[in-house]
């Protein structure tokens, strides 16, 4: 598992160290407008906090590379979730991401006989391709930017998640996202449909058949650098006796420069094994 974390870190370092000089040889870098790469969602793709968007991460244009790394911490009633990773974007077209979700059971771990602060690690490998439209530039058209993507989740607690009823520890989500900036209204809208069988974002493995789930985000632009918004994400409910709910959040994202973004949110993840999980979400993103 540690090697996977280091893979993530190495990837983040690589995107920063290798791509930056490569970029310097091209016409420029980071030329897209502030916040138009979204932030890093909890599974590592560019998006809101809980859901991927059709926007490609980083600030690279159709002639440029982009990259970002992030660290997110969510502190709920009974657990904490850390997520960190990096993405590389090519020509505002394709996005590759790798990230780690570290779910800390805190005292629940002890009560389940797993030990206090027992952790479940999920490594997520993501790829996203923009297939249609331009959310930002095509302001006289209703056609949104559309992207398709995959998120493969590798869970390190095979025995545990199977004992809780999961069929598999690992599995892939497939999604299509449509994002539109309604600039005349300072409003960004996103809708994502996801085929998934992941239990609790994949933290509790994979069960049952693939089902379509819906995710939506709305963000209002207050200034060039600040957006506020809310999100919803429906989830499957496949584990007997361990009810799973829809997740929500309300957020404010602040990008003082193209190299930095801070997102603060209040998230309600619904029931996770022992009760409703609500709490603060903070995320830092650095990139270009």
């Amino acid at each position: 598992m540690t090697s996977k974390i280091w893979t993530s870190a190495a990837f983040a370092a690589l995107t920063g160290c290798v791509c930056a000089p490569a970029m310097a040889q091209t016409a420029g870098m980071s030329d897209r407008l502030l916040l138009t790469g979204g932030v890093s969602e909890v599974e590592g793709a560019a998006g809101g906090g809980l859901t991927p968007w059709a926007l490609i991460g980083g600030y690279g244009t159709r002639d440029q590379l982009g990259a970002s790394g992030y660290y997110t911490h969510v502190d709920t009633d009974d657990y904490s979730l850390e997520s960190f990773g990096a993405l590389l974007a090519v020509n505002d077209r394709v996005e590759f991401s790798i990230s780690q979700q570290r779910f800390n059971l805190q005292d629940v771990g002890a009560s389940l006989g797993l030990g206090s602060n027992y952790k479940i690690d999920v490594t997520t490998y993501g790829a996203k391709v923009r297939v249609l439209g331009d959310a930002i530039l095509e302001q006289d058209s209703w056609i949104p930017q559309v992207a398709v993507g995959v998120l493969y989740k590798d869970n390190n607690r095979d025995t545990l998640v199977k004992s809780l009823g999961a069929d598999h520890s690992d599995g892939a989500d497939f999604y299509v996202s449509a994002t539109k900036l309604l600039l005349a209204h300072s409003l960004l809208l996103n809708a994502t449909a996801r085929l998934t069988r992941a239990n609790q974002f994949g933290i509790l493995g994979q069960s049952g058949d693939y089902k379509p789930e819906f995710e939506g985000s709305a963000a209002y632009l207050l200034t060039r650098k600040i957006a506020v918004g809310a999100e919803i994400r429906t989830k499957p409910d496949n584990l007997a006796g361990l009810k799973e709910d829809t997740a929500y959040d309300a957020f404010v994202a602040y990008a003082p420069t193209k190299n930095l973004a801070v997102t603060l949110a209040y998230a309600d993840l619904g029931n996770i094994v022992v009760g409703d999980q609500r709490g603060l979400y903070i995320s830092l993103q650095a990139g270009f």
């Binding site: 530039l137 302001q139 058209s141 600039l183 060039r224």
Partner: peptide, 16 residues
Amino acid sequence: PFASQNRLLAALAPQH
């Protein structure tokens, strides 16, 4: 006002 800026930019953007 930022919202007014965005209305102008929305009109200009298709010029790309």
